[in-house]
Design a protein around this nucleic acid. Structure first.
Lengths: 144, 144
DNA sequence: TATTGTTATACTCTATAACTATA
DNA sequence: TATAGTTATAGAGTATAACAATA
């Protein structure tokens, strides 16, 4: 027995709790609303650089068709742009536009205001625990 | 300055990372698939007891109309059932059906298998950090 | 053949707006 | 009036299935 029932229940709780947090944050209005799928895609494009539909679909654990639709909508809004792959004619590389980067920054601020207020209620040690947890959640997400 | 930039970035990362985790877990197939909205509603009904549409909408930070639609679909599937409020004729109380509780248990198992494997890769101290983080995320979610 | 991407169709969750019924 | 719920409409994100283009 590697994981106790208590441990497993805690992780389910983690997902339920974070699901709620995501929904609450989505409700925060901005000049230009971004969904969390869009936020995730834009964060990845800015951190990793140009990526194909297949890359992004794998990274976000959705089907390529789904990712294609989401990217098409974002392209329509001018948040991202497509560019043919230099050597592989099948692939299309997506990058953030200047407007995409700017929008990402602005929308981030509105959500950060709310988060900062919520965060300020926690003790410093608790804040540190949350920061440590981020890296662990990322590790778990990378599990096959 | 109560929160450092590093702290704020960490929380955004938390949301992006958990968003990915949620998407990955949704892809896990079961005999009967539940969305994470459904999982959250069912967890709440089992823990808190009978709740109205307005109660659940507030708890999950969505509009009553949205919650009404989701609950109607779940009722159609036999996961929840409605009952008039004993004294207030406007309100409707929702509870889990026996099938809802059973489904919740089964679907939970499939996701738990994946989580257990992912969890087993972490060190005990890291697992403990994640458990502690759950309560903190809940605290943050309760912020107005 | 295998991979990348597109098109078509459908379902879930969400929102806004306008409505009815009850307190 | 205020609150609880419903109905109608729309948009985003997801899935499956079938297809075309390229490697």
């Amino acid at each position: 027995m590697n994981t106790t029932p208590k441990l497993e229940a805690a992780v389910t709780d983690l997902l339920v709790a974070t699901g709620q947090l995501l929904r609450r944050l989505r409700a925060i209005s901005n000049t230009r609303k971004l969904t969390w799928s869009q936020v995730a895609i834009m964060a990845r494009l800015e951190e990793v650089g140009p990526m194909t539909i297949a890359d992004l679909a794998r990274a976000e654990a959705v089907k390529p068709q789904s990712m294609g639709g989401t990217l098409a909508a974002m392209e329509e809004e001018g948040l991202v742009e497509r560019r043919p792959h230099p050597t592989d004619g099948r692939q299309i590389l997506f990058t953030l536009t200047a407007d995409g980067r700017e929008t990402r920054r602005k929308v981030g601020l509105a959500k950060q205001e709310w988060l900062s207020a919520a965060f300020a209620k926690l003790k410093p040690a608790e804040q540190q625990t949350l920061i440590s947890a981020v890296e662990l959640i990322r590790k778990i997400s990378d599990h096959e």
